[in-house]
Write a protein that binds this DNA or RNA. Structure first.
Lengths: 179, 179
DNA sequence: ACGGTAACTGTCCGATCGGTCAGTACTGAC
DNA sequence: GTCAGTACTGACCGATCGGACAGTTACCGT
């Protein structure tokens, strides 16, 4: 049951947003009572927290891994790691971006924004140059939107194209998409 | 008053989302009663609609303008037009992306998604190649996120860097950001 | 056979939601 | 002076929200 609830909540939050989805909606979708949701998770917020925790932990792991790398490998590792993470957690990332106001007020999730910022800083090569900073922010949004929107492209192709596109955005590769 | 209400609603919707902002919140921020909101605009949805209409119309104009251009100028025109539009309507674009579920159900706003899709199609060079399609989608998200997030970079610099970054993403320029 | 506990539900609750409505204050036209 | 109309409000409404709580059922070790 617990798993069913999380699956329903994930789908509904991704489709209608956190504030746009009621406990009644989730209960109906999961095939249980509203009271059952509160039995398994004590709050609506707690459902969101538990839903996003795996992605949050993977982001933390990525953050730690990238930081420990030699300088000249950090950018590429950050890009690849972020793309794969976003692809592995498409709907979670969508919720993360679309419900930022809800998220930043959540004590268990509030550090995600800071970690994302650090990821962007890494992708910019820790530069103060406006061009680098803008490019890195662009990658953040580019990967998110592309993963969140549903396209009929196989995941492995999407992965490679996202990485290539992101590195192009950052000015790391001279070659464009073939045609 | 009417203008004050729209300004308050714009700020609050952008900060907390449509579903996360109540009529009471808007009334308090605008310094009037909740009933006054309904007097000027008949529904909460109508406030959103009126708020997004200018941006919607500019998008429609951009769509028409780009379509009328010779093939070889369309991609660059689409990129430049989109960047300038997003920069001119930062908060509106943020609402547009964060409240897609609300938007697509709104009859007066429902066509925005279709126009955005056409814009992406144009930026992809109307290609069926996965790389092109992914790149174009990336540009859509890249510009949005960068405009929506607040950075202390002057608008004109941001404009140039966004255009350059987007064209790089699309593989239209071999040079990266200077360093 | 039975006590304990985990899983689950129906029902109720106060708060808040978007929206209605009767009424008031002000203003310019005649 | 008065009257129509515009701008606005306080009080109120039903619906829905997240959540509390007292059960009921089913299973399990003893």
């Amino acid at each position: 049951m617990r798993g069913h609830i999380l699956e329903s909540a994930l789908r509904l939050f991704a489709a209608g947003g956190f504030n746009g989805t009621s406990l009644h909606d989730i209960a109906a979708d999961a095939g249980c009572s509203k009271a059952s949701l509160i039995y398994h998770f004590s709050t609506k917020e707690a459902i969101l927290t538990e839903l996003l925790t795996p992605a949050r932990e993977e982001l933390a792991a990525l953050d730690a891994h990238v930081t420990g790398l030699p300088q000249d490998q950090q950018v590429e590792a950050a890009v690849v790691g972020y793309v794969e993470l976003a692809l592995r957690h498409r709907r979670e990332v969508k919720i993360l971006f679309e419900d930022t106001p809800v998220m930043v007020c959540n004590p268990a999730l509030g550090d995600i924004a800071a970690m994302a910022e650090r990821l962007v800083d890494t992708m910019s090569g820790r530069s103060r140059d406006a061009g680098r900073i803008v490019s890195a922010n662009m990658v953040l949004g580019a990967v998110f939107v592309t993963c969140a929107g549903e396209m009929d492209i196989p995941d492995d192709v999407l992965r490679d194209e996202l990485i290539a596109g992101a590195l192009r955005t950052l000015g790391r590769r001279p070659d464009g998409p073939r045609h």
